[in-house]
Design a protein around this nucleic acid. Sequence first.
DNA 1: GGACTATGCGTACTACGTAAGCTTACGCTG
DNA 2: CAGCGTAAGCTTACGTAGTACGCATAGTCC
Lengths: 205, 205
Amino acid sequence: MNQASRPGRGGRPAQISADQITAAAIEVLDREGLEALTMRRIGAHLGVAAMSLYRHVPNRDAILARVVNHLFATALAGLDAGPTWTGALTAFAAAYRRMLLEHPNAVPLLATHPVDPDTAVPVLAVLLERFDAAGVGQEEALIRIQSVGVYTLGHALAQVGTRGAAEGADAGAAQDGADAEYYQRWFDAGLQALVTGFEHRGATR
Amino acid sequence: MNQASRPGRGGRPAQISADQITAAAIEVLDREGLEALTMRRIGAHLGVAAMSLYRHVPNRDAILARVVNHLFATALAGLDAGPTWTGALTAFAAAYRRMLLEHPNAVPLLATHPVDPDTAVPVLAVLLERFDAAGVGQEEALIRIQSVGVYTLGHALAQVGTRGAAEGADAGAAQDGADAEYYQRWFDAGLQALVTGFEHRGATR
DNA sequence: GGACTATGCGTACTACGTAAGCTTACGCTG
DNA sequence: CAGCGTAAGCTTACGTAGTACGCATAGTCC
């Protein structure tokens, strides 16, 4: 059997765990880029052969999913959502965006692999609460949160998910500076538009 | 030399062209999914060996870029932008979205490969004109257009860019119906929020 | 100490992108 | 019409990917 061996009895003790694989994958991803994220390279990073990874993870795609969920969860853990739903939304967007810019090579992954519900729900719960307190219905609240989410991710794709992403992580790693400012201005403008747009939508309903 | 052989003289007549390769790639993509989009499979679709493609295209990634640009260009060709910038924005979003839903397997590609400036500029020009007529500055106009663009793409990623995408195109190809309606409601709500948000932003400036 | 069990590894298979060099099929020149 | 120049397409081959299979290994428990 693969994976999640109950403590059961006996057996050779594991040198690596699924969590270590996830962490190693993120490191390889950040340092060497997305297409360096191979089973052999992750294994090497852990001092283990590629095939050994399969004892802890069913396939490569599961590693990618784990990376996505881990980045999302840690980026939004302990999100300070403030008292209002507007504040909660912008705090969510800012935390999400910060993670995306810190892990530019992961942006295409986030775009391609949905965050697991089990990972997303705790984050959403905090946000939903603020909407509920403001009397906004659950579907409407979800729509507003997810709209901000896809906007933030889409924006990050435009900023970093494309371009070199693969180089050596040093080729133009620190974006032009002027460029970075423009993207930030753009991001803030769009986010503000979304939030105030939703405010008015609430008012006229 | 590769590619773009001037009519020059002589030489064996070409059986295929870069445009045909692009078209074949889109067909394979739509019918068999993203990871079926291999050089050999595209070649087979044209009755040609994989290596023959390299006479017309420098590498696989160039084909992907061509697919992206072609889909974007044809989706937005002849965009009827109406008289107002708000109308132009929603028309743009609708046309873009229609294409994304018609080519769900292409959504991850659009997310990963930026549209070429030469392809994007003509489309942007039509839109920018409406903003200019309304007295909105160029950077602000670009921000509004691009915000709608990344929102639309991000939303499509959430709707279709993920899930099966790879199956056989028949596994749940026609989304649940109820799901599709929810996504449409969500899309419209977010888009409306963005637009009205930008309207108010304009007003308070 | 021996049985049991899960882990890690070596090998091998298939499929990918693509480099190199050869063959083929045309238009042109004589 | 012969044959030459040229560009298109093909064959073969290399390196690397993901991963199936079976064996060697290293612990726990009796």
